[in-house]
Structure formats: C-alpha cells, structure tokens
C-alpha cells in the first residue's frame, strides 16, 4: 500500500536550466532531506546515505537513488530505496514534470512512498506527513537552488 501525494512549485528559470539542476549530484545531495553522502555510480545512479525519521523511528539508510524516464527538458522520475537495518526499509520516488509557465517553469511532482518493517509498524500513520514533509523540503531547497534570491 503506497502513499501518494502531489504538489507543484513555480520556478523563475527556463526548463532546460531546471532540468540540468535536477540531474546535478551536488544539487540533489543538498536537496535530499537528511542526505549525508551521494556518490555517483553512473549518470543515472547514485549510492546514498541518509538519515530519516518517521515518528518514533529514526534510522540511517543506505540505498540507491535512480533517475529514470529521462525526458529532457520535460521531466524525469527520481526514486530511492534503502534498507535501514532493523528499522525496516523505505522506497519512494517522485515523477517530476516541467512545463513553461509565466516566463518560468512550473515544476509539478507526484510522490509515491512505501515503508516496511518496524518503520511501517510504528510509523504507518505518520508516513503521509513524513513523506509530504520530505517532498516539500526537497522541492523547497531545490527552488532555492534554482532561484537563490527567492
């Protein structure tokens, strides 16, 4: 049973530039909440270490971040999955679509998240909130990286 949610953010930059930043490991590392390390394995695959907290369960995750459905400059899909040891596992991703709007770019996203093990046992009720917060954090930070002044 996956949790889904969506949102959008207006960015003051052309689509090409936004798309480029969405593929920049440094930007991604800065935007992924709790991300401590992001090592590039290929253009579309990264090894990540991050800390995530859902309700009472906090864990350090080792996992993979993958970029797929690449369609420059219209969008792509960013997904991550990791095993958090005894805390369980988490999987999630966002389908990102970029469209031209008001001289800038409208970034819309559909997020899907799934958790398992102790994390689901104790945190299922909180996953919607946690996933929303993570997505909001990610795209807030991303918006700031695109529009530093904003």
């Amino acid at each position: 049973m996956a949790m889904t949610m969506s949102g959008e953010v207006q960015l003051n930059a052309p689509r090409e530039e936004v798309y480029k930043k969405l593929n920049d490991p440094e930007v991604l590392k800065a935007c992924i909440p709790g991300c401590e390390q992001l090592d590039k394995l290929s253009d579309t695959e990264f090894q990540a270490t991050s800390t995530m907290k859902v309700g009472p369960v906090k864990a350090r995750w080792k996992g993979k971040v993958t970029l797929s459905d690449l369609d420059p400059p219209n969008g792509y899909k960013i997904s991550g999955e990791g095993e958090g040891g005894v805390a369980g596992f988490a999987k999630g991703g966002a389908a990102v679509a970029l469209s031209e709007k008001d001289g800038g770019t409208l970034l819309s996203y559909n997020v899907e998240a799934q958790i398992g093990g102790k994390l689901a046992q104790l945190g299922q009720r909180l996953i919607a909130g946690a996933a929303k917060k993570m997505a909001d954090d990610f795209f807030d930070k991303f918006a700031k990286s695109v529009n530093p002044a904003a």
Binding site: I115, G116, G117, A120, L122, Q124
Partner: peptide, 14 residues
C-alpha cells in the same frame, strides 16, 4: 495488514 503484508497496527499507538 496492508496489501504488501506490512502490519500497520503494530503498536499501542495504532
């Protein structure tokens, strides 16, 4: 249990 077999009422909170 959710469809993927996760016990989501697994504590006294739920």
């Amino acid at each position: 249990y959710n469809d993927s077999g996760q016990l989501v009422s697994g504590s006294y909170m739920d």
